[in-house]
């Protein structure tokens, strides 16, 4: 472990003070094993208390700290600085309104999640014990349930940038997760919702979401399966 000097360029925006976002450079010394979050903490605690960012679990499960570092969407807490060298450029996620500094407005993101009815819909009464679901049936949705709603995928999606109405990869993945759950009876309702100009058809299999996903979920593949399901359903 050794201290190194790094240069950190951060896109700052303080509402009420700044008219528009601007870059600020901090030259600081940190341990070479630091993560991006360690760097932000160091700046916030030792240099400039006004810096704002979201963070909580620091173990890549809460999804608070997704941001853009040197052009890539990452979770700050799990990303070591050595991935980028000694020059860091940190900005908020694209495609969302900036509230302050690295904090963006995720309300529209969560509102889209709500639209696809993200809960098990049952036509049948639940059994006394658990539903029987084979490991193979679980396997269909297993990976999709790892999504931590960090919004890195939606922020990386070129289809989302020009069209704020597009449901986006995270909500669509959630739709997949329920439609392909062997216990669920709500597929028809959800298919009607995603089978829309602003639904699954705006996905052009660009794969940016897969690249951005910190949980390495193969989102594009699941959205493709979702498209096939929608077509099967409407034929």
């Amino acid at each position: 472990m050794a201290m190194i000097d790094i240069s950190v360029k951060i896109l700052r925006y303080q509402p009420g003070k700044d008219e528009k976002p601007h870059w600020q450079v901090f030259n600081i010394a940190v341990e070479d094993e630091s993560t991006i979050l360690d760097v932000l903490n160091e700046i916030h605690w030792q240099h400039d208390g006004t810096l704002a960012y979201r963070r909580s679990c620091r173990s890549s499960i809460c999804g608070s700290c997704a941001m853009k570092v040197n052009g890539r969407n990452v979770l700050a807490c799990e990303t070591p600085i050595h991935r980028f060298g000694r020059k860091l450029k940190i900005e908020p996620l694209s495609g969302f309104d900036i509230i302050k500094d690295l904090v963006v407005d995720l309300d529209p993101f969560f509102a889209k999640l709500k639209r696809i009815r993200p809960y098990l819909i049952l036509d049948k009464p639940a059994p006394d014990k658990e539903f029987v679901q084979s490991p193979e049936q679980l396997e269909q949705i297993g990976e999709s349930t790892l999504c931590i709603l960090c919004a890195a995928c939606s922020a990386a999606c070129p289809s989302s940038w020009p069209n704020s109405e597009y449901l986006g990869p995270a909500a669509l993945l959630k739709a997949y997760r329920f439609i392909f759950d062997s216990r669920d009876d709500g597929a028809d309702q959800r298919i009607e919702i995603v089978n829309d100009k602003n639904g699954v058809w705006r996905c052009h299999t660009i794969f940016n979401c897969v690249e951005a996903c910190p949980k390495k979920i193969k989102i594009t593949e699941y959205l493709s399966r979702l498209k096939v399901k929608v077509v099967e359903n409407s034929l």
Partner: peptide
Amino acid sequence: HMGVPFSR
């Protein structure tokens, strides 16, 4: 019954 994907 709420849909938690328990391992099986």
